[in-house]
Amino acid sequence: MNMLKVTNLKVSYGGIEALKGISFDVEQGQIVTLIGANGAGKSTTLRAISGLVKPASGSINFMGQDITNLNPQRIVSTGISLVPEGRRVFVNLTVKENLKIGAYLRQDKDEIEETIQDIYRRFPRLKEREWQLAGTLSGGEQQMLAVGRAMMARPKLMMMDEPSLGLAPLVVKDIFSIIRDLKSEGITILLIEQNANAALRCADFGLVLETGRITLTGTGESLLNNEQVKEAYLGAD
């Protein structure tokens, strides 16, 4: 089943077209990754889906509902969470307060504490740092917190913008294993990565974005073995 259906999406920033009409589907329960160079329009795609920028034209459909022109609050409550680029945790709030902000739109206030405990079980490091200000965490811990915060909204689709950016190689490995765990729990993931190699390895499906257009699509494996992709994004060997 297509969970997310993006059709002919165009976004411009002050006259410059960042997305020149892209169409793709995200199937439920899969990891779909968008790869591409800087400025290809990867982040813009996520920002448009989460309602942070208004598309110039095209449509975005999520679980049968047209969300193209909804505001970010409504989109979060339909079940789409964003883990923004560069983690963007709230540095002056504690770890726990950050998590609570993630549940800001949830109505079932009594069950929030339960979700927090779930997240602590998954990331014991966050439990240890519960009362610490998020600004004092390491990069990897902040990324865990950003993922945990997005999970607080109990999303059906989680969009991650460069989760491995600026992290040590060992931590990057952790992050990708977290992404696989989320998938095994039934959360659909739309992933943007500079680290195309790791992203395609864990993705079911991949899309290559070049200056606002999708130029190549295929399963993660087929793109990994594609000569063009190898040359442009994986480094020729």
Partner: peptide, 23 residues
């Protein structure tokens, strides 16, 4: 309160706060 924490979230990072569903 939860409401007040949203103020601090806005100060720390408007974009992230908006992405969390804060109006």
């Amino acid at each position: 309160s939860t409401y007040g924490r949203a103020f601090i979230a806005i100060r720390d990072d408007e974009v992230a706060a908006e992405a969390m569903g804060i109006n």
